[in-house]
Design a binder for these strands. Structure first.
Lengths: 261, 261
DNA sequence: CGTATCATTGACGTCGGTCAATTCGTGTGG
DNA sequence: CCACACGAATTGACCGACGTCAATGATACG
């Protein structure tokens, strides 16, 4: 697993040059206050595809802003089965957990070559209390993480395989495009193998294969050679049981049971 | 669905009397600073079992500290299928999301009679920036929410039905007992129907029924009439593929694939 | 005592897993 | 430039876990 359709990731000279600042936890900081976090930084780091940012069960002395590349967050059961919890894209803040200095509850593996901005764990509490708005921004991002997890949970728990695959690819497409469809049939690069999809969706890679073939034969999407093409957005959203903005529920789960739905 | 083995929930006279203060978002506040949040409070509220704290897709003008009772967080697909995202216990902070004033991305239904402490959404940003440590505590709790979601995700995505049921009940038992086993065969009240379990685990209620019978016949646990009894903690943890503290992984998901595991 | 909900059980069907063989694609070394 | 190696993807045969449907029982509340 090598480079991802691009040269090696590069790192910014300083926080002012950070290419993903508006996506990161630093977002609320005005330019002149950036040097506060700059002083807390332990520099940047580049990791090759396939390497581990941190491992489940081990302690990790740092926290990371993902600057470039894709990272998978995962857990492994004793049975050997691997569950991918989600995919982190540039701007993600990685490694925070309630017990800040305890062993990591999940692992982080670089899917592509990756660049991260490093912050020491020991100094982090001092940093987070300093600039106004930083802690709230962190809360906002963690809340978004929980929502992504809820999306995945709903996807795995409540949808059939076809819908799961369709939904995940649609969601990734939208995340990469800022939530909108660009030109029709536009291709977008997604550096995942069918094994990644399987581990993320609670399926096997062979069933991913047949499902992708079905979706392709139905003219909904094409995902080959790590390039995704949405051929029929409307049809795909239907198959995916996608609810962009959930409609107001005038009927509760309890009532639905009572109604005999 | 009525009362939960106890009289109606009561609310504290003031924050100093709050029975779950050490579990809530207010935890870091010293007693003398509690009046800051007290002044932001919109009072308390009691809701009957079966009612909705807020509904998916609707706006909600408040945030809630859960003081007493059980709440289920859920989503509903157009297909009608309901996915329970998790169960909130006293101390949980409910309703926060990245778009603070946007429509709720999930619903919250009272499983039992419930008491909540209410905070207005409009005034919340001012509150959260005020007392030192409050925003960080919020981040900590949201991070814990993400971890619970990851637990459920792993449970649904990577375990068989038997293990899923065992794992969920074991986890609830431990949450209620502060993470430890008390006296052997102790009973604990869990106000969930088999339908709740099914919606939380991505299974059907009839399969929950047969699975519970199996687990009972194997002498692992008993869950009848909303009372759970752990009969064989060790055996149950085994069936549940439970990893309390995950072991350090000396082998990455990538390596495992390469090793042909 | 009547009714609504929850729980249980059995027969049957299917979605998705397992196993195994083959092909494809890409990077490596001669 | 070609041969090789190795992981990723594809395909088919078979099977089992779990869902669906339907009927019956057990509880609790009015």
């Amino acid at each position: 697993m090598k480079n991802w359709l691009s040269e090696a990731p590069t790192v910014p000279a300083n926080c002012g040059e950070c290419p993903v600042r508006h996506l990161t936890v630093c977002q609320p900081l005005k330019a002149e206050r950036l040097e506060i976090v700059q002083n807390f930084k332990n520099g940047d780091r580049v990791l090759p595809a396939g390497s581990q940012l941190y491992q489940p069960g081990a302690t990790c002395p740092e926290l990371y802003n993902l600057l470039d590349g894709w990272v998978s967050l995962y857990r492994v059961l004793e049975s050997g089965r691997c569950q991918i919890l989600g995919f982190a894209l540039p701007g993600s803040f990685l490694g925070f957990q309630p017990d800040l200095h305890g062993p990591m509850l999940h692992g982080a593996e670089c899917i592509t070559d990756v660049a991260v901005c490093v912050v020491g764990r020991r100094t982090f509490p001092a940093l987070i209390e300093r600039p106004r708005g930083l802690a709230v921004r962190l809360a906002q991002m963690l809340s978004q993480d929980a929502i992504y997890a809820h999306d995945n949970l709903t996807n795995i728990g409540a949808r059939q395989a076809r819908a799961r695959v369709a939904h995940l690819l649609l969601e990734l497409y939208l995340r990469l495009n800022g939530g909108e469809f660009k030109t029709a049939n536009q291709e977008v690069g997604i550096p995942l193998t069918q094994i990644h999809l399987a581990d993320a969706l609670g399926l096997t890679s062979v069933y991913i294969s047949v499902t992708l073939r079905q979706l392709r034969e139905e003219g909904l999407l094409s995902f080959r050679k790590r390039r995704l093409q949405i051929l029929d957005p409307v049809g795909l959203a239907e198959v995916a049981e996608y609810d962009g903005e959930p409609a107001v529920q005038d009927i509760s789960p309890l009532d639905r049971r009572l109604a005999g739905g």
